[in-house]
Amino acid sequence: MKKQPATSLKSKALRMLATREHSRAELKRKLSARAEEGDDVEAVLDRMAETGLQSDERFAESYVRSRAGRLGSNRLQYELIKRGVTADVADTALSEVLEEDELTRARGVWSKKFGQPPEDRQAWARQARFLQSRGFSAEVIRKLLRDGFDEPAEG
């Protein structure tokens, strides 16, 4: 596959950003695969950031907004960091974008999947594992699934 020159890297970056927000790390990875040896991917990324075309803050807010209805805060933060966003930017995006509290969001995810309380320990464990895989904290899961199979949570 033929590598693309720097001007083409700019246009490729613009096309990627036109479809959805990307973190700087994502763009760097994608553009590096298409860059020739003399091309300066960092210069293209710096220029995109200077002009406001690429922003990790905007990417993080968009990412959290689009997935907040399905994932817990722990998972959202993990996913953002995995995509190259710093922990500070991820924390800021989570605090600014998430309007509902964690328990309310967990209840929404739980009701779509299950809708009724667990009948026995096995069902409780299955529901708890599901919520945990979605990134909800153990405290939130206990509060949501509070019944005879778990110690009551304070609050």
Rank of each mutant, 00 (worst) to 15 (best):
P117Q: 04
F149V: 00
A60F: 01
R75F: 15
I81T: 02
Q122S: 09
Y78G: 01
D56L: 09
V97Q: 06
Q54W: 05
G115H: 06
P152E: 06
T19D: 05
Q127A: 04
W124S: 02
Q122T: 11
G72R: 01
E36W: 08
A90C: 07
K112N: 15
R83H: 15
A138I: 00
Q132K: 12
L98H: 02
D120A: 03
A93K: 12
D39Q: 13
E42W: 11
S111E: 15
R126N: 09
G38P: 05
R126W: 11
G148W: 12
R34I: 01
I81A: 10
S62F: 05
S137I: 03
E151G: 12
R146I: 04
Q54N: 15
G148T: 15
V140T: 10
A128D: 11
G52M: 12
A35T: 02
A90P: 06
L144W: 11
L27Q: 01
E96D: 05
R129G: 01
A49D: 15
E139R: 00
K28P: 04
R65P: 08
S133G: 14
L98C: 10
L53F: 07
R20F: 02
R20P: 03
L71G: 05
A13S: 03
E79S: 11
A60Y: 10
M48L: 15
H22V: 02
V89W: 05
K28G: 06
Q4N: 13
G84M: 00
E57T: 12
R134E: 15
E57D: 15
L27V: 01
F149Y: 13
A125Y: 01
K82Y: 14
E119Y: 07
A123V: 05
R83Y: 15
S62D: 12
Q77A: 14
L76D: 15
V109T: 02
R129Q: 14
L94A: 09
A25H: 02
V85W: 01
L145G: 06
L53R: 04
E36Y: 04
E36K: 13
W124T: 04
S8V: 07
V140W: 10
S55I: 09
A87G: 13
V89N: 05
A13F: 03
P117Y: 00
K2Q: 14
R126Y: 14
L144S: 07
D147A: 14
V41F: 09
S11D: 07
L9W: 11
V85F: 10
R126L: 12
K28M: 03
G135W: 03
